[in-house]
Design a protein around this nucleic acid. Structure first.
Lengths: 196, 196
DNA sequence: CATTATAGGCAACAGGTGTTGCATTACGCA
DNA sequence: TGCGTAATGCAACACCTGTTGCCTATAATG
């Protein structure tokens, strides 16, 4: 029998995430992982075909952490939680956020999934149910662009005040502005309400 | 006397920008530049102390190109031109946009300058002049977060329709929503109008 | 026409990367 | 207690990076 594995797959991924958090995704290398584990570079290749594969696995783990954030009940409003969680993730895990959304990793699937969650929450709100499909899409898109912009600016360190309360207020206030606009436009049949 | 310089500083910078546009900022290396110029790596060090310095010069040139974009009269509204130009820049020059705003190059000075331009334009609009300083700041910040979010999503390739007309409509429509909200809040002294 | 300063090419240095061949080691079954 | 298997460490390969020493070629001056 072989000696039991000293370095488990999960340890290697966790070490990788530490490195990404500290030095960024592009600094993740086999030797860097080895240093973190006090080992040679071999164990990496014991569990992964290539560094490419390890990087994929590490990215996947950051994505699942993102999902934790958007599910977390920051407020009583699930709609708001997704946006606020997204921004908080950008604040708490800069390098993960960069790896997922700002490097060339085709993040569109994740965004689509988050948008779907948001849409599901939206139809639960009575005031929004009367909106047409197109009106809801406009609202969703606007809200998301704002949220993503906010997250990206927090990521860049441009937003000095990034406490939970401020993030929630910002997302909430602007969301309300967009919602009120949608309802108003729906009422008077202005160009936005094409579907009606 | 020495032989006259075959490779001018400007040529080196232009070659660098070509490389950045094609392969990204992090792929910009002395040997890449040499390949582009059909030369050795020497000329780079003839005109620049280090690659660091060349990278700075290249980044500076991308920033001046960004300014061209936000000054360009896409519409008759200078306020709108800045936002639309910003998004179009992200669309036309992905890698420059990434280098300026999404890598660790402290872009806050540029954002501050753009915000100042926007503020200057804002006070020229009669309806906005009655807003308090704080109300104007809220409006500006909201508009900018949305614009930056839009640019970042265009950058990521998530916005499929990125024609000039759509970009302008998007920035304009949302800007109007924010402006109307500011004016409305100013009227009824709601929490946003703290300064009044 | 000779001289001299210097731009540029070549090739090397040190350090980084992914990856792999080989020797060693330790485990748990026989 | 011995043995086979497979995980690990070491060291090397090839290729990337920034940078520099040395040599050559050139152009304007004396």
């Amino acid at each position: 029998m072989p000696p039991k594995s000293v370095f488990y797959k999960s340890e290697i991924i966790n070490s990788s995430l530490k490195i990404v958090a500290k030095k960024g995704f592009k600094q993740l290398s086999a030797r860097e992982v080895a240093r973190e584990l006090n080992s040679s570079t071999r164990p990496v290749y014991e569990h992964f075909e290539s560094m490419e594969e390890l990087k994929k696995a590490a990215l996947q783990k950051t994505i699942s952490l993102l999902y934790d954030y958007v599910i977390r009940p920051h407020t009583k409003n699930a709609f708001l939680n997704i946006g606020a969680g997204y921004v908080m993730f950008a604040r708490d895990h800069r390098e993960y956020f960069r790896a997922i959304f700002l490097e060339d990793n085709d993040s569109s699937g994740i965004i689509d999934e988050l948008l779907k969650k948001l849409d599901d929450e939206m139809v639960k709100v009575p005031e929004l149910r009367k909106l047409t499909r197109h009106e809801r899409q406009v609202l969703l898109r606007r809200s998301w662009i704002f949220t993503h912009g906010f997250a990206t600016m927090v990521f860049a360190g441009y937003i000095k005040n990034d406490h939970d309360a401020y993030i929630i207020k910002m997302i909430s206030d602007t969301g309300i502005v967009f919602i009120e606009d949608s309802i108003r436009k729906h009422g008077d049949g202005s160009p936005v309400a094409k579907g009606k």
